[in-house]
Simulated assay, not measured.
Amino acid sequence: MAHIDYYLGTISPWCYLAGDRLERIAARHGAQITYRPLDLLQLFDRTGGVRPAQRHASRMDYRNQELPRWADHLGMPLTLKPAHWPVNMAPSSYAIIAAQEAGGGDLGGLVHGFLRAVWAENRDISDDAVIRDILGAHGFDPALADTGLFVGAETYGRNLEQAVAAGAFGAPFYIVRETDQRFWGQDRLDFLDRHLATL
């Protein structure tokens, strides 16, 4: 069985645009996914990237054209300037980590639920009530928002270190453990699909 490490930031529009395609690809090939939310801005700092707020205007202008283009192509709603962005990624990331540890719900749906909350619903994913609501909506105990804080914080930091060591430098970033094949971006999911078919 192939194993995919999925490095993500819960405020990334590109992770949002990935939708549920990773989950569908993994199911088709019998692959397992480990979700590794991390501090995406620190990942940029550590690997030579530039935070959006510091990028040249030309890059941001292009980003502001490309995001709606992809959203239209994928048939997904997108708010180009969300009401709560950027926002603290840690609380939602801790919730994902705790949910993954606890099991019993729709983990892929939970991840996308947080991303959709930012990019399509104008919700604040650092707010406890929002986190609890999204946990509950995807079959997890809303109390994980509180009980998962310690393990979440520990794993959140470790995910960043593992991402750097594994060669990830942005999000979404998918790494197939068995082959060390790396795929950066939601627009590389077709290549991931093709690679898994060869295993």
Rank of each mutant, 00 (worst) to 15 (best):
A166Q: 00
D128N: 09
F140I: 07
V87F: 03
Q162G: 06
R63E: 15
L78K: 03
V164C: 05
A153N: 11
A99H: 08
L74G: 01
M60H: 14
H112Q: 12
I96P: 10
R59C: 07
G105M: 13
A129Y: 13
E121C: 02
I97M: 12
D141R: 11
G48R: 09
M89P: 14
P172D: 03
A117V: 01
A145Y: 01
H84V: 10
D146H: 12
L107N: 09
R123P: 05
H138T: 05
W119T: 01
H138I: 02
Y156G: 08
F183S: 00
A143H: 11
W119A: 03
G170E: 05
G103I: 07
A57M: 15
G167M: 04
A168I: 10
G136S: 04
L144H: 08
I125L: 04
N64I: 00
Y94I: 06
A99V: 04
P142K: 08
L135I: 03
Q181N: 12
A83F: 10
R177N: 11
E66I: 08
Q181Y: 12
A95P: 05
H112V: 11
H112I: 07
A166C: 03
D128T: 14
I131L: 03
Y62F: 15
I125Q: 01
A95Y: 07
S92Y: 01
G113K: 13
L107T: 09
A53F: 10
G167T: 07
T155R: 14
N159G: 08
I97R: 11
Q65K: 15
W85K: 03
P91R: 02
P77L: 07
A120F: 14
P82H: 02
I96L: 15
A90M: 14
A53Q: 13
K81E: 15
W70V: 01
I125K: 06
T179F: 03
H112C: 10
D106E: 10
A95Q: 01
A166L: 02
D61Q: 15
A129S: 15
D133P: 10
I175F: 00
G167P: 00
L144K: 00
A98H: 03
D124Y: 06
E154L: 06
F183G: 00
N159C: 06
A120H: 14
R55A: 13
Q100E: 15
D128R: 12
A99G: 10
V176S: 02
G167F: 07
P77A: 04
D124I: 02
D106V: 08
A83M: 14
P77H: 10
E161Y: 00
A117H: 08
Y174V: 04
T179M: 00
G109V: 05
H56M: 13
V151M: 14
G170K: 01
R116E: 15
A98V: 00
L67I: 05
L74M: 09
D106T: 06
I97V: 05
D180A: 09
D180F: 06
H138L: 05
I96K: 02
D133M: 12
R177D: 10
Q100R: 10
G139K: 02
D180Y: 04
A83D: 09
A57V: 15
P142C: 07
F114T: 11
S126A: 14
V176N: 01
T79S: 11
L115K: 00
G75D: 02
Y156E: 06
G157W: 00
E178C: 02
R132E: 12
H56L: 13
P142I: 01
S93P: 09
L160P: 03
Q100V: 08
F150R: 12
R51Y: 10
P52L: 13
A83S: 13
G108Y: 08
D180L: 08
A53I: 13
G170C: 06
